[in-house]
């Protein structure tokens, strides 16, 4: 263990090596490490954002589904209500038509009956008059007793 000038040579080598590391080794590796750290941080942030987006999208989808179901139910209720109304209207229309038809038929029947009654009455009157004529052919002058006959005819009505 002797001391000699190797010491100063080693001292110089020491600083040359340190300078080399400082200039060419340390900065690129530290830069790469920092960049990688940033990349990882960015990646994690992006993953978090994607997770949040997914949650939002799921919530939105559920909302849309609920809305669609609600509007479908509303539409169905409306359609049912309308259908019921249409049926009611049709029913009342039908009832009205039936009543009308019945009224018309009843009126017609009444008129026909009236007419038949009158016809029958006239025939009865004519038969009575002709019967009486046959009986009273001679004694009764049609012209003289016209007023009497007319009265009789009137009473038969």
């Amino acid at each position: 263990m002797n001391l000699n000038a190797t010491l100063f040579a080693q001292l110089a080598v020491f600083f040359i090596l340190a300078w080399f590391t400082m200039s060419f080794v340390w900065p690129p590796i530290v830069k790469a490490l920092d960049e990688r750290a940033k990349k990882i941080a960015d990646g994690l942030a992006a993953a978090d954002k994607a997770k949040m987006d997914l949650a939002n999208a799921e919530k939105k989808a559920v909302d849309e589904m609920r809305k669609a179901r609600e509007s479908a139910a509303e539409l169905r209720a409306g359609a049912e209500r309308q259908a019921a109304q249409l049926i009611d209207e049709a029913r009342s229309e039908a009832a009205r038509l039936i009543a009308q038809a019945r009224e018309a038929a009843e009126g017609e029947a009444g008129v026909a009956m009236q007419r038949a009654k009158e016809a029958l009455r006239e025939q009865v009157a004519a038969l009575a008059v002709s019967g009486a004529e046959r009986i009273l052919r001679r004694e009764i002058n049609a012209q003289v007793h016209a007023e009497l006959l007319a009265n009789l005819n009137q009473e038969l009505k």
Partner: peptide, 11 residues
């Protein structure tokens, strides 16, 4: 070698 180590420690 003491020269080597002392060289560095003096650095």
């Amino acid at each position: 070698d003491l020269n080597g180590t002392l060289g560095m420690s003096i650095g």
